[in-house]
Design a protein around this nucleic acid. Sequence first.
DNA 1: GTATTTTAGTTAAACGATTAACTAAATTCT
DNA 2: AGAATTTAGTTAATCGTTTAACTAAAATAC
Lengths: 337, 337
Amino acid sequence: MTIKDVAKKAQVSIATVSLVINNNKRISEETKQKVNSAIRDLNYYPSRSARGLVSRKTGNIGFILTENHFLRSEPFYTQIFLGAEFEAHNKEFYVLLTTVPAASKSNNKLPRFVLEKNVDGIIIAGTVSHKLISALSGYTLPIVYVDYYPEGKESSAVLIDNYGGGKTATEHLISLKHKNIAFLGGNISHPSIKHRFEGFKSALEAHKLPFGTNSSVVDEVDTSRDNGYKAAKKLLKNNPGVTAIFACNDAVAIGAMQYLASEGYSVPNDISIIGFDDVEPARLTTPALTTIAVPKQELGSEAVKLMNRLLEDKKVRSHTITVGVELVVRNSTARKK
Amino acid sequence: MTIKDVAKKAQVSIATVSLVINNNKRISEETKQKVNSAIRDLNYYPSRSARGLVSRKTGNIGFILTENHFLRSEPFYTQIFLGAEFEAHNKEFYVLLTTVPAASKSNNKLPRFVLEKNVDGIIIAGTVSHKLISALSGYTLPIVYVDYYPEGKESSAVLIDNYGGGKTATEHLISLKHKNIAFLGGNISHPSIKHRFEGFKSALEAHKLPFGTNSSVVDEVDTSRDNGYKAAKKLLKNNPGVTAIFACNDAVAIGAMQYLASEGYSVPNDISIIGFDDVEPARLTTPALTTIAVPKQELGSEAVKLMNRLLEDKKVRSHTITVGVELVVRNSTARKK
DNA sequence: GTATTTTAGTTAAACGATTAACTAAATTCT
DNA sequence: AGAATTTAGTTAATCGTTTAACTAAAATAC
């Protein structure tokens, strides 16, 4: 079943069929009907490959994720990806996923879907290497960043309100009368973590609470459970009087809770702890983790919506969307005794 | 950069370039070198669309998931999908994901990637409607089923050893000296659940343990946490003396544990419970859930490997792969007091 | 009533590869 | 040595669309 069969059946040229498919206004209502019924009768659908070849539109969006994010057990980026998938379905796109080595490993090998011209645009989730970004700029593909964006260049991005969330988290602890509040970070070089940290500091400042060097641990290699465990150990050693902890994400919070439990501290009676992200496991710890919920799927769907606008309307300027976060109070935080 | 540019630079015909790309043996080592260096110099990659049009190979695999599976919080099918993605990356395929309404809702609208001839084969994960399957059979696409396969037709599938797992789970409880052991199922009509149930029964039988009608609850609508909660309630009402429960999956087990906790039962002191699947949350319940681990990512990767063989070698007969499962002992099961 | 514009469609080129059929040169066979 | 075969490449058709350029008929303008 090709366009030719439809043309023959409807007794028009293939060009007319094509114009009908792309509903060009140049076609009369009458022939449109005729063609459409032929299409229906023959159960015809235009072939992607043929369309793509001449129109240079593939109907695909490339999704780039770093390997370490892909493999993490907390499905943070996975949720973003699924949100993107879902929205792509609505917008009649398909999403091609690829992973690239972590930002640290310098690498500028481009994803195959770029080389093969098999995507109309690219969504990049998380921190990727600068080399990759500059290699990508050789192509004229629109790019939407998620939860990260490269400094300097003007680009389109969907970001989390990390600063606001950091502030909200900290204010929650302050409202529970805590005075000695600590921040547990992984690698502070990641912009998201940095902004959460800044929100933390600004909240302390706003309430005239002290902030010393032993109120934070920000020198772990990344934000994993293991490092949360280690960070909590360091923190308690340097600052035994701490009564509340704001962990930069749930993984770190969970790791920290494991350390606290192993040392006989009771959460939230001895120490309150709040996380960030609201990943599935946060709901299942004992006690359940109070956290700042990030609408992960929304991040993905917003990215696709933004990409869609970029593709539909060439004159849309690149811009940034910030999605809000929400305090979810569970059982790991309590009023200071 | 098209094949023409390469041909010009290497001073050969475009056919020769094409033959080199597809490493046809008809080309001498010498011209091969010449062409390859032109390719490298020009940073040329063949366009997917153009290739696809003439060769009728898209390089894409379609992945069909039912909506309810896609949306479930326990990322069971998500893990299968990710495993498929990963393997697809190795095999140089892209995966196009789509969801279809649940099997119950009769629906025979085919995924767009099928209509547009945008995939070389299809992986179907979970139970889909028969209408869909028969609509699909109008196309000559190879199909690989995962965790399900249609009765009757000879088809390729990657399945879980549900029967063996059910037996192993039950034997674990038996080895802990339990006598009154119950099975908590959702909808028994799902083949996977049915096989787990059969494994359960066969283990009881092999150890000459009784099996009565109040040793199982298999009338909930599906295998969710909520229904696990409800099923446990029913079970305890009908069979108050039960000391061990084999839940047909982790979601049901977690729901059941919630009910048991709410009623003041202690797990595993009063009642032992074992699940099936080993999803993330199972690790985080209190107590951590003993379960039968299903290698979810492996299911996905095996599906892609099988698809790859089907596509490479037309004469490969359809066949079935069963992946093994493994008992993971955590803290929700204990020797009978 | 003729000239101009609009409408509704057609023709044909193009997109960038693959591949069957062909060919000339080199090699092997007898 | 001449015929037959193999090797290494080329030519040209083809895949199924889109779209620029064209055209004939109808509508509008003057």
